[in-house]
Amino acid sequence: MSDAVKLFKAPIRLEYTIPAGRATSRFCRGLASGRLYGQRCPECKKVNVPPRGACPTCGVPTEEEVLLPDSGTITTFCIINIAFAAQALELPYACASILLDGADSTLFHLIQEVPVAEIRMGMRVRAVWAENKLASLEAIRHFKPTGEPDALASIEGHF
């Protein structure tokens, strides 16, 4: 069929204003002041970060705020080698799940200031904070190695 219409434009744009929620709002306000807050579950006592206001294991409200250090251990990571549309960083770079000291769930962030080939599970890392801290995870520019010995044993069960 030579006259088949193969394409027409039907643009869709919707704007939303989304409250982050109570737990995420507290977490983001903490980030803006250079602090990382998790929440402890009243039942299983695990500390979840970032907190969502509910323990994903027990399904109960989590209210107790726990101030966490900005250091932790890499539980798993990936190296990005392929260019993509929204890419903001020079290739190759690495993202990692980081188990903050005192937390029971991991935080996702960038690992920089180290050749990607040296990044490994168990590596100790610390947050590098932005000078102008927004109320978002962008308040942390990235994590970098601390140079401490690896701590593979501390992340057992998290990879």
Binding site: P19, G21, T24, S25, R52, G53, A54, G59, V60, P61
Partner: peptide, 15 residues
């Protein structure tokens, strides 16, 4: 107008 996220909104009714 909820200030809660979805989990925070659902939790009270489920409980």
């Amino acid at each position: 107008k909820a200030e809660a996220n979805d989990a925070e909104l659902v939790m009270p009714v489920v409980r």
